[in-house]
């Protein structure tokens, strides 16, 4: 198996409300999979299931060839190989930017401080944040905070990066600088699954676009096909609504 991630018939329900149904998804190395769809279609829940933040109710998730939906799997070991960035940044306010980045490498991966800091500074420099390393997160703009959150997720060299609508809380100007980072990571071959409302961006960077509706992947394919010639009527409706100027 060469794929990074594969899901088979994943199902998730909260009581009677089914939020994910029959999710089949394959992520190959260097793929950028964009999940699109209206709010409540299950994009975030899917990402949370992939990161084992939620137990699935049926189906299976394979990550690097191992079934991680097995209850015996150590979720921490899996998460050490995955990075996730949330809409609300979730930076640790009591730590400096640099300490936010080095915490996981040092404590969860046993990297020594000097190595962790060198690597983190490299990331911060690449993300244009080198001068903010000693600041606390609340001194930074939203876009800068979200870039720090991305750098923090990348600091442990994850095999897969999950991004949950990370530009949804930012104004258009700041959105641009965060998207630029994602574009850059995609160019470097980082494997990513991201939920996004930025259709133009998805068209540009995605290798695969999945349209979710009512908890199911209604249609998936290369961006040119999904945006240019969608098979499903619901996809067409959705795109008409969100692409209207």
């Amino acid at each position: 198996m060469t794929e990074v991630l594969r899901t088979e018939n994943v199902r998730k329900a909260y009581g009677d409300k089914v939020v994910l149904r029959d999710i089949d998804l394959v992520v190959e190395p260097h793929d950028v999979v964009c999940l699109i769809g209206s709010s409540g279609s299950g994009k975030s829940t899917l990402l949370r299931c992939l990161d084992l933040l939620e137990d699935i109710d049926d189906g299976a998730i394979f990550f690097e060839g191992q079934e991680i939906s097995d209850p015996r799997v150590d979720a921490r070991a899996v998460r050490r190989r995955m990075g996730i960035v949330f809409q609300a940044y979730n930076l640790f306010p009591h730590l400096t930017v640099l300490d936010n980045l080095t915490l996981a490498p040092r404590k969860a991966h046993g990297v020594d401080r000097a190595t962790a800091e060198a690597k983190s500074m490299e990331l911060l420099t690449a993300f244009g944040l080198a001068d903010k390393a000693r600041e606390h997160p609340d001194r930074l703009s939203g876009g800068q905070q979200q870039r720090v959150a991305m750098a923090r997720a990348m600091a442990t060299d994850p095999a897969l990066l999950l991004l949950d609508e990370i530009t949804a809380a930012l104004d258009p100007e700041l959105t641009g600088e965060v998207l630029e980072i994602i574009r850059r990571l995609a160019g470097e071959g980082t494997t990513m699954v991201l939920a996004t409302h930025e259709m133009t961006f998805a068209r540009d960077v995605a290798t695969t676009v999945c349209f979710l509706h009512d908890g199911a992947i209604l249609e998936q394919g290369p961006p040119a096909q999904i945006f240019g010639d969608p098979r499903e009527e619901r996809t067409r409706q959705f795109l008409r609504r969100v692409l209207q100027p």
């Binding site: 009677d16 089914v18 049926d58 189906g59 299976a60």
Partner: peptide, 25 residues
């Protein structure tokens, strides 16, 4: 039409997983 619980039965894999979860508990 919103999906309901009625048209779903757990797969063999899920039955086994539920049993395993019970054993772990």
């Amino acid at each position: 039409m919103p999906p309901t619980e009625a048209d779903w039965t757990p797969s063999a894999r899920q039955v086994e997983r539920d049993a395993l979860r019970r054993r772990l508990r």
